[in-house]
Design a protein around this nucleic acid. Structure first.
Length: 302
DNA sequence: GGCCAGGTTCGCT
DNA sequence: AGCGAACATGGC
C-alpha cells in the first residue's frame, strides 16, 4: 500500500491509538498496528507496519481471519486505507501554514501526520459522546470496558483481539447495561437510543456521507447527545472532511490561547473567529494541534 | 477533599 | 436568548 507522501506511519497510527499502546481493541506496539476489522460482518485481523519512509511511504498489510474470500480481503484493505488516511494530500494545508510561524514549525515537527479515520460513523458517534466532558484517561477506560464487554472478539494464535461493538449489541445492552459500565444514565440513554435507531434502520448514518456539511449537521444535531462539537469532531475523524472545527472544545481553546493569545485561553467565539483564516483546512490544524499537545510538544508563546 | 476534564441537555429567568 | 446545574469518574 502506497500512501500519498509525505506520510508518517508512526505518528498517524499513534494518533489513531491515542498514544502508542493499547486503545480499546487496537494495539500499536513496536511499529505494528494490530486492529480487528469488522468487514461486512466478517471479522478480520489486520497487522500493518511501515516498509518505507516519510518521503517514500509504503505499508505492508497482513490480513488473517476465518473467512477470507477476495471480496472480504478487498473490503478490508479499503477499510485500512481509510482508517490510516493514506489518500490524504497535505500540500494545501502545508502551504497554508507557512504563513504562520507557530503553525509552520509545528507542522514541520509532525510532518507526514495524516488524520486517521474511524471505521464507521456509528463508532465515531458513540466514541464522541463517550468522550464528552470527561478526561481523556477516563474516556479510555470507558472505551475499553465497552469494547471488552460488548465488542466482537476473535482468537488468533491464542491472542484475543476485539473490535468495536455492533449497534445491535449496544441496543440490546440497554441503558442499564451501559450504565453498569460507568456511563452516566444520560450518556447511556444517548448511546442506546442511537444504537436502536441504527439497528432498526430508522437512522442511516453511513448514508450521510453523500450529503453536504449542512445536511449532515442538521441530521446529527437532531439526535440527543449530539451538539456542534460532536458534529465537527465527526467531520474530522469520521467523514474525512477537511474543514471541521470543534466549536467549544476546551482543550483547543487553551492550546490556541497559548499560541495566539499570550497564554490566555480563547473563548469558543474567539477560537472560531480566529480559525476562519485556516479554512478550508481547519480539520488538519485541529488534528495537528491535538497531536502536538498529546506528544508533549512545547508550544511557543506569542 | 475540591476541582476539573477534548459537551450537551434541561429547567429556570 | 442566555445562564447554571447535572451528569460520573479518575487524577492532581
Amino acid at each position: 500500500m502506497h500512501p500519498t507522501p509525505p506520510y508518517h506511519f508512526d505518528l498517524t497510527a499513534g494518533f489513531a491509538t491515542f498514544f502508542q499502546g493499547r486503545y480499546g481493541g487496537d494495539i500499536f506496539e513496536e511499529g505494528i498496528l494490530h486492529k480487528l476489522l469488522d468487514v461486512n460482518g466478517h471479522l478480520c485481523l489486520s497487522r500493518v507496519h511501515s516498509l518505507g519512509t516519510v518521503a517514500a511511504p509504503e505499508l505492508e498489510v497482513e490480513l488473517t481471519g476465518p473467512i477470507l474470500n477476495n471480496s472480504v480481503l478487498d473490503a478490508a484493505r479499503q477499510q485500512i486505507a481509510w482508517i490510516l488516511g493514506i489518500e490524504q494530500d497535505l500540500t494545501g494545508f502545508y502551504r497554508l501554514v507557512k504563513e504562520d510561524d507557530a503553525l509552520a514549525s509545528l507542522a514541520e515537527a509532525m510532518r507526514g501526520l495524516h488524520i486517521p479515520h474511524v471505521a464507521s460513523i456509528y463508532e465515531a458517534l458513540v466514541l464522541a459522546i463517550l468522550g464528552q466532558q470527561i478526561s481523556s484517561h477516563v474516556a479510555q477506560v470507558l472505551r475499553t470496558l465497552l469494547i471488552e464487554r460488548y465488542g466482537q472478539s476473535l482468537d488468533i494464535d491464542g491472542v484475543l483481539y476485539r473490535s468495536f461493538p455492533r449497534p445491535d449489541a449496544l441496543a440490546s445492552a440497554g441503558v442499564d447495561g451501559l450504565h453498569a459500565l460507568g456511563f452516566s444514565v444520560r450518556k447511556s440513554e444517548y448511546i442506546w437510543e442511537i444504537s436502536r435507531q441504527v439497528t432498526s434502520g430508522t437512522l442511516d448514518l453511513e448514508g450521510l456521507r453523500a450529503r453536504s456539511d449542512e445536511e449532515v449537521a442538521q441530521a446529527l444535531i437532531a439526535l440527543r447527545g449530539v451538539g456542534p462539537w460532536t458534529v465537527h469532531w465527526l467531520f474530522i475523524r469520521a467523514f474525512g472532511r477537511t474543514d471541521g472545527f470543534p466549536y467549544g472544545d476546551l482543550a483547543l481553546c487553551r492550546i490556541m490561547g497559548q499560541l495566539f493569545n499570550a497564554g490566555t485561553p480563547f473563548t469558543p467565539e474567539q477560537a472560531l473567529d480566529y480559525s476562519r483564516r485556516w479554512s478550508p483546512y481547519r480539520s488538519y490544524v485541529t488534528a495537528y494541534l491535538f497531536a502536538a499537545k498529546r506528544s508533549g510538544y512545547a508550544f511557543p508563546s506569542v
